[in-house]
Design a protein around this nucleic acid. Structure first.
Lengths: 198, 198
DNA sequence: TGCCACATGTCAACGTCTGCCATTTTATAG
DNA sequence: CTATAAAATGGCAGACGTTGACATGTGGCA
């Protein structure tokens, strides 16, 4: 899993990275995103402000640390699903599979959601993450089915899956994160059928 | 249509606003978003940099000038559709209706798309616009059907409609803006049915 | 005409982000 | 073990976006 932890330098680097992430989440949760400066995050992580920008290209990015890695994992899970499964089915099953195998602790995502909700710029950034997720799903479906680029079906399947995830999660958060998130997602999927067929 | 053009002051104000928008679009098209400063936009519009921020809360916002107004118009068109129409049907027809009645010249949207595509921060902002569009559609459907907030169907209908618009427009731009945009949107809608039903 | 609200300009300040260079620390060859 | 290369870090200056405060000018209206 951890890519490079062999040498001393690599371990130290990974530790600094995690300290920056932890410091950022703590401060954002305490005071809100705008009221925290990059200098304060760096100070709590025992590095200089300049070093922060060597680990993350922008202040926002510390909130989505391993976005690319998670995307690749999920993309692989979709491709690895049994061939007979239909595209949307494969995406749903890959979601459930990763949800159960990995931790699938919604707590970190919930904390981030609370921070994001307070700042419009972060809302936009969050949507960009969903957009990348959609693109990854679309490409994975194309790889499964061999559909040509001109076929809009893979993209629309990804739209439905990503939309269900987003709508369900938003409502789950709005309801105080008390209910069953998985059931909420399944509810969103069945709502699509009701929306399409009168 | 134009809200307040009665007094001299109001007309002058509207003129300044349009000059800022025009100047921004010209400069962005020439040099790209990042290579243009707010000061340069203001200079071309014959105002100070400070005045720019009195018309638009941020540099980005000059690219989506009357977003709220268009949203309200579209929202009203959905609500005004004949009662027997099903939600998704009403949204589709409202789109076609506004597309034909109003100019529906895709040229401005295309120019913006070209500018946006070059800058990641603008891509995120563009997705925020789609998100607001989705929320307006969802609320309009709720108003039509009287569905309770707990029902996810209106939100998922909005996801499908917004997704079809977005996927079709993106592909239309990627194909050089040569084909028929309306046909592409209809293709995206039919692709959803194929995605849902095996 | 004279008063008042409003639009604008100027100035100062803060935070994000980048390029550049010096310094320190770690890895590795010999 | 030591010398050298590579990498990580810090400090500094500067551009840019954004905001608040204050002063000035202009149009609207009694």
């Amino acid at each position: 899993m951890d890519a490079d932890a062999g040498t001393f330098r690599d371990r130290k680097r990974e530790r600094t990275r995690e300290q920056l992430i932890a410091a950022a989440y703590e401060l954002f949760a305490e005071r809100g995103y705008d009221a925290v400066t990059v200098g304060e995050i760096a100070e709590r992580a025992w590095v200089s402000e300049r070093t922060f920008f060597r680990y993350f290209p922008a202040k926002e990015d510390v909130l989505w640390p391993d976005s690319a890695g998670q995307l690749a994992t999920f993309s692989g899970a979709i491709v690895a699903r049994p061939a007979p499964e239909r595209p949307l089915e494969a995406v749903q099953n890959a979601m459930l599979e990763l949800g159960r195998v990995m931790g699938m602790d919604p707590a970190p995502a919930l904390l981030r959601a609370r921070i994001v909700a307070q700042t419009p710029a972060l809302v936009a950034r969050d949507l960009l993450e969903y957009s990348r997720w959609e693109a990854a799903v679309r490409d994975a479906i194309r790889e499964r089915t061999g559909a040509p680029d001109a076929d809009l079906a893979p993209a629309m399947t990804a739209v439905v899956a990503g939309g269900a995830l987003r709508v369900a999660f938003d409502r789950w958060v709005a309801d105080g994160a008390a209910g069953d998130l998985v059931a909420m997602i399944e509810g969103a999927f069945t709502a699509v059928e009701a929306a399409i067929r009168p």
